[in-house]
Amino acid sequence: MTKRSWWFWLVGLGATLWAARDMVPSTGEKGEEMANALFWGERGLFRPDWDLLSPVASGLTESLQIAIVGTTIAGLFALLLGMVAAENISTPALSIPTKALLSAIRTLPELLMAIIFIVGVGPGPFAGVLALGFHSIGTLGKLTAEILESLNTKPMEAVVAVGGRRVSIFRYAAWPQVLPEFLSVLLYRFEINIRAASILGMVGAGGIGKTLMFAINARSWDRVGTILVGIVVVVAVVDNISARVRAKLV
């Protein structure tokens, strides 16, 4: 190993130990008891309460709806902002500030946006939709601009050469390339948003998170277990379908 890689490992190990020092679990009899209750107790995580299935299903459905509507709204705005941000379509005077705006939006976490929107429009799924929609515009807008900037111009040149108008260039040369790539990033964002939508409720922005929060506060680990299983199933199914569709698109 070189001198430099020794230093690298040493600093990495030191930083990890320093960070872990303050992360020790509560010890003693009480800690053990709590851990037991959490995992194996009569009402532990691994003993899901199947009676809870119906409220869990409706909470999960709401999360799914929040993710769908939030992603769709973000997609529409991202398409517009992406065009303004794309250097080859827009002008530098518009493109540079729009790109800056999009990256500023990306830095604000969903939960923070959710809390702001809850205060602004009241608690419930609508605040969740706004939070997810707003946050997703940042990444989706950037990806849309990148898709537009990497457009293959050859088919476009062919439409120019036959005397086509701008609208024809867009419809017959650009759009057929943009649409599948855009849908693909939209679906990918949807996969991320369904995860986010399952915790939004913890701050009051609708979906399964609310039920989860109540169960945790009541230390009803059996109910928490049911909810976690539900989230895993929904996320896995969405991921799977979405990945298949994306593979078909490209």
């Binding site: 062919a158 036959v162 005397g163 108008r165 017959y172 040369a173 057929p176």
Partner: peptide
């Protein structure tokens, strides 16, 4: 310079876009 994602027929019709 075809639009690879469109059908062959659509690509031929593209020739008429100016007319």
């Amino acid at each position: 310079n075809l639009q690879g994602r469109l059908s062959v027929l659509q690509n031929v019709l593209t020739g008429l876009l100016g007319q």
